[in-house]
Each structure stands twice: as C-alpha cells, then as structure tokens.
C-alpha cells in the first residue's frame, strides 16, 4: 500500500498549501523571484512578511544569494548555475523551495524583534523642512514633534543607501509628500518623512525627504562585520535630545535596546 500513502500525503500537502496560501510568486528576471503578500503598508502584511522571512532565512538552499524583504514582499536572488533541471525551469524549482519552507506551521519561532530607542534632535539647525512640515500639518512644530515621537515604527526594509531604514507608519497628519526637487546634499543622520514613511540617512547623499531632525547615531560602520545599525524587522522609537546632548553624544556609551514602555 506504499504508493497510496505517498499519494495521500502529496494531496494533503497540496491542499494545505492552497488553504494557507496568502501570497503569490512571480519572477524577477531569470535569477530572481518575488513572493508578494499584499499591496499596502499594513501591520498584518508586515507580520506575514516577518514570519515568512524567518522561515526562509532559517535554512536557505545554497543557490540563494540574497533574501530581500520589502513592504509587502520578499525577493530572492538565486544563482542559476547552482541548479540543474531538465523537465521544469529553475524558476519552478526555486518556487517549490520557497513553498516548502513557507508551508511550515506559523508557530514557527520568529527571531525576537528588537525595540530600538533612537535619539533625535529637532533643533532648527537640523530640521531643514520645519516650515514645510508645519504648513502641511497645519500645526506648530512642537505639536508635530509630539505626534512624531508618539509612534513606534516598524523597519520594513533597508534600501536606497546601504543601511537606510524605511520605517512606517508616520501619522497621516504629518505625512508630508517628498520635496518636488530633491536636495543636492542631505547630511548623514538626518531623519526624513516621505508620506507615511520615515527614514534615516546613513551617509551624506542627495535626497528628497522632509527633514525633521537629526540623530547623532552613526548607523553604518563599514569596519564592522554587521555594518548596518538597523535590520529589517526592528521596531523603533525616537526620543528627543537637546543640541547639547547631540554634540556630546557618545555612541560607545549608548545602549539603544529597550524593553518597551
């Protein structure tokens, strides 16, 4: 009766796959695929992406080069020459590898997310878009700061620049759109708002986000084996510091890991 058993378990696998499947998979060229979980910046989608990410990262096949999370998706870049298939395409094989990993129970242990407390100075020396933000939110800068500090942000992804965290969600009242034309230079540490996203510039760079303040924290260190301060999946709260605190800040004495408020 051996063949029957095999057949049954295969059917179970397929039906379980169909029931729990809340994602779609499509190719990104001949060396990549994206697993898409939704279309909006939402807590539930974020949760699904984080769960899937820990499953995929825990035991990746040797042909996978990169596992890149974004707001609602995860993209895998793979090495074609690591696969040898005859009947089906390599894409189908990698897709199967993904599905096999995602089918594991959702009780799967997610790496505990870190809650990071990040200092920010709102001195007008740093808050380059103070007036623009005030006009958008139709409120005082002090009130705007309160709104900004009241949220806990999720680090959805890192991108744009090495170590640049894309965080959400910024309160709609202060969610000003990007500048019409980007600045030629935004200094490292600048904290910006672009719609419901907030981010921190790791390096001096051109940039079009509304700059609300600056952190003295250095968020990229190329000498380190973990070169970026943030990781996808981190949670972030900002706390206000004065201009004096900013200039006397000592990163070596700073512990950003909090246990929540």
């Amino acid at each position: 009766m051996e063949p029957v058993t095999v057949k049954l378990s295969f059917t179970n696998l397929t039906s379980a796959l169909n029931e729990s499947k809340t994602y779609s998979i499509y190719s990104v060229g001949d060396t990549g695929l994206t697993i898409c979980f939704g279309n909006g910046i939402e807590d539930e989608v974020y949760r699904q992406v984080q769960i899937a990410l820990s499953k995929l990262k825990s035991n990746p096949p040797s042909g996978w080069l990169d596992i890149i999370p974004a707001y609602t998706s995860i993209t895998i870049i793979y090495k074609l020459t690591n696969y040898s298939t005859y009947k089906v395409s390599v894409f189908e094989v990698v897709k199967r590898e993904v599905e096999e990993r995602l089918i594991e129970s959702d009780d799967f242990e997610i790496a505990t997310t870190r809650l990071l407390n990040i200092p920010i100075c709102f001195d007008s020396k740093f808050a380059l878009d103070k007036i623009r933000l005030e006009q958008f939110a139709n409120t005082s800068f002090e009130h705007l700061i309160d709104i900004f500090l009241s949220q806990t942000y999720n680090v959805y992804l890192l991108g744009f620049l090495p170590g640049f965290p894309y965080m959400a969600s910024v309160d709609k009242q202060i969610a000003a759109p990007r500048l019409a034309s980007p600045r030629k230079l935004v200094e490292a540490g600048s904290v910006g708002i672009a719609g419901e996203q907030t981010g921190i510039y790791p390096l001096n760079s051109p940039g079009g986000w509304n700059i609300i303040g600056r952190t003295p924290l250095r968020i990229i260190d190329i000498e380190s084996s973990t070169p970026t301060f943030f990781q996808p999946g981190d949670r972030v709260r900002f706390f206000l510091i004065t201009l004096e605190d900013f200039f006397t800040f000592d990163q070596s004495q700073f512990n950003p890991v909090g246990d929540g408020y």
């Binding site: 060229g29 990549g32 890149i68 974004a70 993209t75 870049i77 894309y166």
Partner: peptide, 10 residues
C-alpha cells in the same frame, strides 16, 4: 507602487 526587490537587468 511600494518599493519591491529589483535585479541587475530590471
């Protein structure tokens, strides 16, 4: 659109 992964050649 929301930012999503891209590849060399996209």
């Amino acid at each position: 659109l929301l930012s999503t992964g891209v590849n060399f050649g996209t």
